[in-house]
Design a protein around this nucleic acid. Structure first.
Lengths: 119, 119
DNA sequence: ACGTCCGGTTCACAGGTGGTTCACCGACCG
DNA sequence: CGGTCGGTGAACCACCTGTGAACCGGACGT
């Protein structure tokens, strides 16, 4: 599926320009992100996943689509890579900005990136 | 918000285009809905039911038809699945938009989706 | 070449969530 | 009244996700 990349809504990130969502700034050229005024070091996979999520902030992205975008190929049943990396991202983002939630789970579907104060 | 919310035919929902009815926006590709500016997380079944109802907003849809559309197969006498899910949907929608009623019961027939200010 | 470090993947277990069914109750109707 | 229908809360169980740890292979320094 995939209708990807409607130019309409969100800031780009594939071209090297920083992508901002709330107080998160993703810097493609540097492979890192700023959360508030804190620098967050990310591995290649983590960065790629964060970018994929943030480019469509506020929208749910299906696991299948996330996988093909970040890892390439199709998601094998039972593959937990996505979960593990979402977890790593959450750890780092929330550590840099306590009291906030960034990645929301939509069970059976996928994840949605949307910085919100934790409830 | 511009929208042709004509009920009779079709705001599609299987093609991936968002379906709008009043201040409710259903996003097929994401398995979620927006009510006003709030994201409403829905399970797969809930989403499927909401979509079935909203695609013919303003019209009563028979229980039998709802069941075959959402669950597949024919409705067994005594099956309460629909009632339970209508209830879940009402909870979530009304929580996201207090003072509004979305799903109307037509006893002996079925349900009708039509966002209205509560009486 | 060897040992270490580190990121990425896989594994295993625990806790959550969702789907179905059941139980109970009030409303409605002949 | 007895029967049907829908609203609602809860039980039950399968499946999904969260999470810490093990595992593996490549990069790097000595």
């Amino acid at each position: 599926m995939t209708t990807a990349t409607r130019a309409t809504d969100l800031p780009e990130a594939s071209d090297g320009l920083p992508l901002r969502v709330a107080h998160v700034e993703i810097r493609p050229r540097e492979g890192m992100a700023m959360v508030g005024d804190r620098a967050v070091a990310l591995s290649v996979r983590e960065f790629s996943l964060l970018t994929a999520l943030a480019r469509r902030a506020g929208h749910v992205i299906a696991r299948e689509e996330l996988f093909s975008t970040v890892w390439g190929g199709s998601l094998r049943r039972g593959d937990r890579s996505i979960d593990v990396y979402v977890h790593k991202l959450r750890q780092k983002l929330e550590a840099a900005s306590p009291g906030w939630t960034f990645i929301h789970t939509h069970v059976g579907f996928g994840y949605r990136f949307a910085p919100e104060p934790a409830v």
